[in-house]
């Protein structure tokens, strides 16, 4: 009873739906605010980094995170905790050792990747809205294959967070001895948020415990993983909060350093 009927054609066609997307909600809103938010932040940060000024408050030892650690010849005496290694050519930012790594850390971050792939690259702009490109190879080739290096930038970010924490601690010691003002609160708040963002990283979650097969054999790492997982759920929020705290901290230090506002002192 062998049948000789012809088989159906191999490739059937998709449904011929004319509209590119039938979504009726405001799907374009999220990519739009992402573009606006990220562009504004990058513009502010670029201007600030190349101002080469108003980064250090001598009276209270506040140093903005955008200039930490300060390592060019331009750096004022008190701010250069790590020596003055680089020449004062204008193109070199004061924090030339840390800024590139911070940039790469955020650029390869799983959350920011989602954000800019969707908003800047339109791949895809929103779910069930067509990709803005003819061909697509994802992260399988150079240069996007390099996203896999994220964990190394994570290690770098841990070191940088340590430096930022040190800056925040040093700020309690002004020339007049121990001091405490609004600037200290802002610096501390920024550092706490930076740590939360850094620790909530997906690579961190993997390294700390995610890579294990048997949690039962590593109870401490399991607890750590549970904590990081709890933070990790909030990674997107932390990514935006830290952009905010970084800009705010920098702006506050700039405003105090430029004598636009006085620092609100609680002690000394």
């Amino acid at each position: 009873m062998t049948s000789t009927a012809t088989r159906p054609r191999g490739a059937r066609a998709r449904a011929a739906i004319a509209a590119k997307t039938l979504r009726t909600d405001r799907w374009w809103f999220a990519p739009l605010i992402t573009v606006v938010g990220l562009t504004a932040w990058v513009a502010y940060a670029t201007v600030r980094v190349y101002l080469h000024n108003w980064y250090w408050v001598e009276d209270f030892h506040y140093l903005t995170p955008f200039y930490s650690p300060c390592i060019t010849d331009r750096c004022v005496e008190g701010a250069a905790h790590f020596g003055r290694i680089l020449p004062d050519w204008w193109i070199i930012p004061e924090a030339a050792f840390t800024l590139p790594f911070l940039l790469l850390f955020r650029l390869t971050c799983y959350y920011y990747r989602k954000a800019y792939y969707r908003s800047f690259w339109l791949s895809p702009p929103a779910c069930a809205v067509p990709d803005g490109h003819q061909t697509y190879s994802g992260e399988t080739r150079f240069p996007l294959l390099g996203q896999n290096l994220h964990r190394y930038f994570f290690y770098a970010a841990v070191i940088i967070s340590l430096i930022n924490s040190w800056d925040a601690v040093l700020a309690f010691h002004s020339p007049k001895g121990f001091g405490f003002g609004l600037g200290n609160l802002i610096l501390i708040g920024n550092v706490v948020m930076l740590w939360a963002y850094t620790i909530s990283c997906h690579s961190c979650r993997h390294i700390i415990g995610g890579r294990l097969k048997h949690f039962s054999k590593h109870p401490l790492r399991y607890r750590a993983w549970t904590f990081v997982s709890w933070l990790n759920v909030r990674h997107m929020q932390l990514a935006w909060i830290t952009l905010g705290t970084l800009a705010l901290t920098d702006f506050y230090v700039m405003a105090v350093a430029a004598d636009w506002i006085p620092d609100l002192r609680f002690i000394n």
């Binding site: 990747r113 792939y117 779910c127 697509y136 992260e139 399988t140 294959l145």
Partner: peptide
């Protein structure tokens, strides 16, 4: 490697599986 973690799968999953994360 083709996945660029834009998370649409997670958005539509009716079982709320955190597919991407």
């Amino acid at each position: 490697g083709y996945c660029n973690i834009t998370k649409c799968c997670t958005e539509v999953c009716p079982e709320h599986i955190k597919i991407t994360d």
